[in-house]
Computed example of a mutant assay.
Amino acid sequence: MDALRAALQQQIDQDRILGTVTAVAHRNELIFHEAQGFRDATSGMRLQAHDLFRMMSSTKSITAVAVLMMQEDGRLDIDDPVSRFIPSFKDQQVAVAPPGTTSPEEVRLVPAQRELRIKDLLTHTGGLSSAPMGGLTSVASLINKVERRQGDSLADYVDRLGSMALDFQPGSRWAYSPTDGFDTLLRIVEVCSGLSADVFLEERLFQPLGMRDTAFNVPAAERGRIVPVVQRAGDSWQAIPSMFGDGPYRHLSGAGNLFSTAHDFLRYELMLLNHGTLEGRQILKPESVRSMARNHVGQLFDEVYPDWTGGFGFGLGVAVLEDPSCGHGRGLGTFGWGGAYGTVTWSDPELELAVVSMVQQPGANLTSVIAPVLRDAVSSHRAQG
């Protein structure tokens, strides 16, 4: 793994990142788990392999697995309407307006042609609080006024989301829902299981997988392990506030506020790579993992922003590589997702790899650095027999 170590160090030396923790397993064996660079902008302290990272949207994959667990338990079907579990989502409306409008007065509401389904939220095809992307605008944001209040629980907030207009007819487009879609999904898990999100995930996923450092709220004694979020400012690095604040959190976001380590998320990706089982313990059935890792949206994701999404379909909470020429060396069928501060994880069935890349700075993504090196390493290993 000297080539991987050198490629990552080059990113640090060129001031593209301040530091990173990377973990890789091949054929279920750990072949790389190292911290490189620094953990903050001022102290000169080196990153440690066990440091804690804000996973941001890497949380979404975890939420998708929780939903699939509830489906396996017979508590829901992903084709169920959201209103079955959260009645405020009944009889939603869709916002429409002339192209390019910025005026709320030009927005009108029409009935949704069908109810919003759980699967729509899992695949970002529901139109709930969509982010502008690929030239698509969020018309509904011009009139929607629902905001998270201080002290809100997940139940408090999600119940109010049902009053919001959708950006488009459910299932008709792909547009990323940064927070509200997956917060709604995690609330559905709470309703189905009768447990709070943190208790459910600890009992059903984190503890069985040995993810001992993954949680929404980090214990006070461990908070010193949290890596600060940084950005480049001219010729230096500076710390910046995190999007979700410092916690503790009452609102447990299924979209983005888990903390974790490279060790923990590698175990999670290995479970997915092994069809739902790790070290003899089944977390998901193989058919659930296959559903998660299958493209459910046709060309909707591939076409939304070709420079980024081209060659990919979208599964349940994860992007799915359908054209390997777009994957920077990753194999056909690779599936995974990342977070706003540079956490990226994936499972690659073709190359038999589970990969975790941890950074804490907006916009950082080391996939194009890591993936080609791993492709070369696996190819060399296979050539040697």
Rank of each mutant, 00 (worst) to 15 (best):
A3H: 14
L8W: 00
Q11F: 02
L18M: 04
R27F: 04
I31C: 07
H33L: 12
A35C: 09
G37E: 10
R46I: 04
Q48D: 03
Q48N: 08
M55L: 14
T59G: 00
A66H: 10
V67A: 07
Q71N: 08
G74Y: 12
D77A: 14
F85L: 00
K90T: 11
V94F: 04
T102W: 06
S103E: 13
V107L: 07
R108F: 08
A112H: 04
A112S: 05
R114F: 04
T123K: 07
H124S: 06
S129R: 15
S141A: 13
S141I: 01
V146H: 13
R148T: 06
D156W: 15
M164Y: 01
D167E: 09
F168I: 09
S172N: 14
Y176V: 05
D180T: 06
G181E: 04
F182S: 01
L186R: 00
V191A: 06
S193H: 02
E202H: 15
E202K: 15
E203P: 13
L205D: 08
V218F: 00
V218E: 00
G224I: 02
W237L: 09
A239D: 12
G247E: 00
P248T: 05
P248K: 05
T261C: 03
D264V: 05
Y268L: 05
E269R: 03
L272V: 03
L273A: 01
G276Y: 02
Q282W: 03
L284I: 04
E287S: 12
E287Y: 12
V297R: 07
Q299C: 09
L300I: 03
W308G: 04
G310M: 01
F314I: 02
V318Q: 08
E322P: 09
S325E: 08
H328R: 15
G329D: 04
R330C: 00
F335A: 09
G338F: 08
V344N: 10
V355M: 00
V356F: 04
H381V: 10
A383L: 11
